Computed example of a mutant assay.
Amino acid sequence: TPIILPTNSAGAGAKLHWHAWLPSETPRAVVLLIHGYAEHLRRYDHVAAVLNAKGLAVYALDHWGHGKSSGTPGFVPAFSAFTDGVEALLAQVKARHPGLPLILIGHSMGGLISATHLLSHQAEYAGAILSGPAIKPAEEPSRLMIFISRLLSRLLPKMGVLGLDANGVSRDPKVVSDYLADPLVYTGKISARLAKEMFEAMHRVQAEARTIRVPMLILHGAEDSLAAPEGSQYLYDHLGSPDKQIKIYPHLFHEIFNEPEREAVLADVTGWIDAHLPKAANP
């Protein structure tokens, strides 16, 4: 049954596809996995398998306009359509697994969505992990570019204004070729509206980072050309959390879960989760 966004949402009536990966035993905690721009949840099957092996249930959804969900690819009416989806997924998870600790993992734009979500829902989570979060753009836009983006967002909201280079996804050529061949991956341009909404969400997270106090692990590839590593450093420096950690991986590109070193990255993820779950949730 899809998640249907409520009437008070910017994406009202949209049907959002979601999926659960469950471990063979009773789960000790639940991970909400928030995917990035232009991709879809099934690109995280291998991540979910690693988490399942550690006794963790994993839930994810395709954002508005992504994957198998309804909406227009490359566009969003308002950034809140994304965070409304996460809130709806959270409600599903809490109903299915009452009382279990929750961990939030967000990649790229999903890291920005996750950080925005935490501004109002951090009390729900035992911890959060952000992978290559889009806290700052790869190139800071000029004031003129921001003005033009806002103007186009009003006049031509679906006009494509920004393309991304798929070669920046991973140093593994098979990952890049699979990405380009995947029919559920959107390879068109980011619309004027989505660009404006993302810039505004970035500025909000930067301005309000001090209010986020949930334990957080921030991971980023040093050679990420799609989301600035400086954004992760800025978030780490300004987080209000007394329990925070950042790791910048030398040489890695944007999708650190899809780099040749993915096993080591995922070991860092599971090790951090183990250290941040209540003792009762650890084997």
Rank of each mutant, 00 (worst) to 15 (best):
E263I: 12
D243Q: 15
L100F: 02
L22M: 13
S170H: 07
Y186P: 03
P141Q: 07
S241L: 00
R150E: 14
L252V: 08
E87G: 13
V47M: 02
I103F: 03
E200T: 01
G85L: 05
I34C: 13
I103L: 08
Y236W: 11
M109V: 08
T116W: 00
V265F: 12
S177L: 10
A209D: 00
Y59K: 08
F257G: 05
T26M: 14
W18T: 11
A123C: 07
L152I: 07
G240M: 04
P278C: 07
P73K: 05
Q206H: 00
L5Q: 06
M202A: 02
H117A: 03
H238P: 01
D182Q: 10
V93Q: 08
G106C: 01
L33S: 03
N282H: 15
G132T: 04
L90Q: 11
L152Q: 05
S177T: 13
W272M: 06
L130Y: 10
L118E: 00
L180M: 11
G160T: 01
P229D: 04
A222H: 11
D182W: 08
Y234R: 11
R143M: 15
E263P: 10
M216K: 04
I190S: 12
G127F: 00
A126C: 14
A275C: 10
A48I: 09
A209N: 00
A91R: 13
G163R: 12
L180N: 12
L180W: 00
A53P: 09
L130P: 02
H117Q: 08
T1F: 14
R28K: 13
P133V: 04
A14M: 06
P2F: 09
S9Y: 05
V265S: 12
I105Y: 00
A192Y: 01
S232V: 08
P101H: 02
S108L: 10
R43E: 06
S153N: 10
S241T: 02
L90E: 12
E124A: 14
L235E: 00
L104N: 00
V50A: 13
T7Q: 15
M216S: 09
D45T: 11
A267P: 04
T211C: 00
L151Y: 13
A166C: 07
H97E: 11
L194D: 00
P2G: 10
M159E: 11
H251Q: 15
E39I: 08
T72W: 10
H35T: 09
L266S: 07
K189R: 14
P278R: 03
K136I: 03
V50K: 11
L56F: 02
I148R: 12
I113G: 00
I3S: 03
D178C: 02
Y236I: 05
E263C: 11
S24P: 13
P141F: 02
T116D: 09
F82I: 09
K54N: 15
A48K: 06
G221Q: 03
M216Q: 08
D62V: 03
V86F: 07
F257R: 12
R42P: 08
L219N: 03
L155G: 09
H117K: 02
L252R: 07
Q122G: 01
H63L: 06
R213Y: 08
E140T: 14
L217R: 05
S170V: 06
S131I: 09
S225E: 14
H63E: 01
P6M: 06
M159G: 04
R96N: 15
F253K: 14
P173I: 03
V30E: 12
E197M: 04
A115G: 06
R213N: 13
G106L: 01
A195F: 14
A280H: 10
V58E: 04
L100E: 08
Q233W: 12
I146P: 06
S225I: 15
